[in-house]
Design a protein around this nucleic acid. Structure first.
Lengths: 334, 334
DNA sequence: TTGTATGCGTTATCAA
DNA sequence: TTGATAACGCATACAA
């Protein structure tokens, strides 16, 4: 591997001059510039990014921590992040947690170890204290997720309000025995959606039956299993609110397999509005999160933090939208 | 930021001793070991990974280049890669190409720049010469994709044989006017599947009608658009072979929207067997690729290359499987 | 077992 | 405009 030293020697100039040419500085005479450029070509020189990063103390790269690469909900967020990152000269590397908290901690270490200039985490499962400790020293932004009573920089929607909205929609359509499929209750996101579920039931004078609430993880398979568990109870269920579209679609599979018609026998609503939700049969009523915008905002905030700026607004709350499709029975009941 | 120098000074030992403790070497007296450990805690020391990498000339990380993070087909491959990588002490970073070739070239540069020890590319769109040039100097493995007449290390299935198998299945069911939805013809993968399509038609004495072949990209939306274009021609089409499940599902959406029943009016088959394909309505007949195994094999090969070993077999061809579901009419015709 | 000193490849500082 | 040299933080060859 040719180094800049080799280039300098070949061109008959100093390392400093060679470096200036490599970096595109303009205070080099045309003559020497040419010499160096020729040397670079002749030796097939490529600057060593690691050495450069050590010297400059910047990697121009950020890591995005993704809870589960298989959940399409995250994909558009990533696209938003990538767009802004590219404009600002940052490389985006994705780290897949595979729903394993240890992996999240591991990648957070890349900050302290100077492998990365910043982190956007689409998860918030590592301990609050650790998260705040890291955040106090390095640029970190949380997106989608958030931590209770913490002023960590984050961008999200109001999950309680959003789930109240979709739950009230079900109530308005006449559904009363509504099940809830969700993921780990220690994740605030899911707790909030569950809170919305409970509040709407209470506000409408419906007793909350915890046997209608099933816990699993955010995946197709888990949604399928939760729905099966719900049905096996033989309790009456005429609608289901899944805390994520991916679980909702898994649930729809379980219903269809058992010959239970959606929405006539049981309505299904989800949360997120992933691409698939408009394709599946029947199309899914859900809450649309502004995924791309979320990514864009998060990366903008991270850029500010990495530039050492103070954030004007550390807690960004974006708008959501109730998307009504056929899975909740709008065509039959509305 | 505390450095190892600070740790050494604080502990009253040499840098070398401090470094030994940090790296867990055993030739340090218990007394000094304790001193250093205390210093590490007191100073909150974290080794600088970049400096370490510069010194050791290894990053212990690999990059996986993904054509499009949104295509779920790649996800299980990634899981396979991650599993083997983890076992071998490698960090996996994902680079999303967003179907943009320039991004692929950009990440290939990370090898020459020593930011990465190896690359697994799930794409093969950059020029053949560049790919071979890079591969001759650095550890590179291609998975899923491959390049014609090249002995680049890669792991894949026999796409021609597989698409012949699924096409023959359609023929056997009595379909004659079969459309084909595919992606860019410059990608060998899609050319092979197209080749299989043509061969089966020819073998069965059916004239190939190029107007029944539509080109787009590998996405839901594109599958939808291709199918619309196909239907708008008003030619008779009683079956469609999509060169990827994601396109097949987009096509199914177009058919459903127009009230064309699947498979009674038009059968649909795909390729890949993504998770969704068993969920959609009707479930999709397709070719199952051994995705996890593909990832495992690819990472194993990359590990060998990174260790400087010669590969016993540079061209690994894995088995595929025809998965028959309802979208091709097995229940009505079979 | 311990410490000294050098180099990894680059950029930045300073003087010329 | 140019070049000599130090420094980034670490690991290691070598000497003690």
């Amino acid at each position: 591997m040719a180094t800049i030293k080799d280039v300098a020697k070949y061109a008959g100039v100093s390392m400093a001059t060679a470096s200036r040419v490599v970096r595109g500085e303009d205070n080099v005479s045309p003559k020497r510039k040419k010499l160096v450029e020729d040397a670079i070509k002749a030796l097939n020189y490529e600057p060593n990014a690691i050495a450069r990063q050590l010297r400059q103390k910047e990697t121009h790269s950020v890591i995005v921590i993704i809870p589960d690469i298989r959940n399409t909900f995250f994909h558009e967020i990533i696209v938003g992040i990538e767009k802004v990152a590219f404009q600002n000269g940052y490389q985006v590397l994705l780290a897949d947690m595979q729903n394993d908290v240890q992996v999240e901690e591991y990648y957070f270490n890349s900050l302290a170890q100077r492998q990365t200039d910043g982190i956007i985490s689409l998860s918030a499962n590592i301990g609050r204290r650790l998260m705040e400790e890291v955040s106090s020293r390095y640029p970190v932004v949380i997106a989608c997720q958030y931590i209770d009573n913490s002023d960590l920089p984050n961008v999200t929607i109001d999950n309680i309000e959003a789930s109240k909205k979709i739950m009230q929609h079900l109530i308005d359509r006449g559904y009363r025995n509504i099940g809830h499929l969700t993921s780990q209750p220690n994740i605030l996101l899911y707790r909030d959606r569950f809170t919305g579920y409970c509040q709407v039931l209470a506000e409408n004078g419906i007793t909350i039956d915890l046997e209608l609430v099933k816990y699993g993880e955010s995946s197709l398979e888990s949604g399928y299993e939760q729905m099966c568990a719900l049905l096996d109870q033989k309790k009456q269920v005429d609608a289901v609110f899944a805390a994520g579209d991916i679980m909702a679609i898994g649930a729809m599979k379980a219903l269809t397999e058992r010959g239970i018609r959606i929405p006539q026998d049981c309505a299904v609503v989800g949360f997120d509005d992933i691409e698939l939700s408009s394709i599946c049969t029947p199309p899914l009523t859900t809450i649309r999160q502004p995924q791309t915008k979320m990514g864009v905002m998060a990366m903008n905030m991270l850029c500010d933090l990495m530039a050492g700026k103070e954030l004007a607004n550390r807690q960004v709350v974006l708008d959501y939208e109730l998307v009504i499709r056929e899975s909740c029975g709008y065509s039959t009941l509305g």
